[in-house]
């Protein structure tokens, strides 16, 4: 159908893509979600979700093997809206400390670092913090963006990760959160928006963000 909103969820064999597909499908009867690794199908979609769970080395190996790096680069060059989630976001950076340093896609400047950097992670009161950072934390919106539409500042989203993004370009940071240190919770560059948290697991706030993505034209 002509006025269908086609969303491709990039499938590179790493974990649970059912949740994000179901969450997007629940938002509108006019949305068609394909979970696929087919480059042509992905590049024909109106918008693209680049998810990821698990360890970065295995993810990067599959991303490269399936040419996902070229697909994402091309989609962004064509100004197609792309939403990267969790390890999908980390994969866009220069490199990750996980698995003994792994080169990532180098699409955005910045590093992926371990919480605490090998030392005990402490909060403002000196209490030890657990790693992974697992649960609902507040996200401070550091710049206005169409994806924050109807999402209140400092709303809680669901996170689960042991490594975090340290952005290299402050202007690209769209949101921050704090866990022992302030880290990048959301990045924005052209038609690309990347989040460390899981909107598909963040109930109303997460569904609002996904709905915003469905209506986003990729511009500011």
């Amino acid at each position: 159908m002509l006025d269908m909103n086609n969303v491709a969820v990039i499938d590179y064999g790493m974990g649970n893509l059912h949740s994000v597909a179901k969450a997007v499908e629940s938002l509108s009867a006019d949305v068609r979600v394909s979970v696929t690794s087919d480059a042509e199908q992905i590049l024909n979609a109106d918008r693209i979700i680049f998810p990821g769970v698990g360890a970065i080395r295995d993810c990067m190996a599959e991303i490269r093997r399936l040419g996902v790096d070229e697909i994402v680069t091309k989609a962004v060059a064509e100004k197609r809206p792309v939403l990267a989630i969790c390890v999908g976001m980390q994969a866009l950076m220069e490199r990750s400390e996980e698995n003994g340093n792994v080169d990532c896609l180098n699409m955005l400047p910045g590093q992926v670092l371990r919480f605490g950097g090998g030392k005990a992670l402490l909060d403002a009161n000196g209490q030890r913090l657990k790693v992974p950072h697992m649960g609902w934390n507040q996200v401070t919106q550091t710049q206005p963006h169409p994806l924050w539409h109807k999402v209140e500042d400092n709303t809680r989203f669901y996170f689960v990760h042991s490594y975090y993004v340290q952005a290299g370009e402050p202007n690209q940071v769209a949101g921050t959160s704090e866990y022992g240190e302030v880290f990048t919770a959301a990045l924005s560059q052209d038609s690309l928006f990347a989040v460390q948290f899981h909107p598909e697991k963040s109930q109303h706030a997460g569904l609002q963000l996904l709905d915003n993505f469905l209506h986003w034209d990729g511009t500011r």
Binding site: G15, H18, S26, V160, H198, K201
Partner: peptide
Amino acid sequence: GQVFIPLTVGGGIRTLSDIRTMLNAGAD
């Protein structure tokens, strides 16, 4: 498919294939 918060599934998880089945079904 209807509840968009994290879901843990336990009970009878004995093999890697059991885990894959549950994750594919939507368990986090």
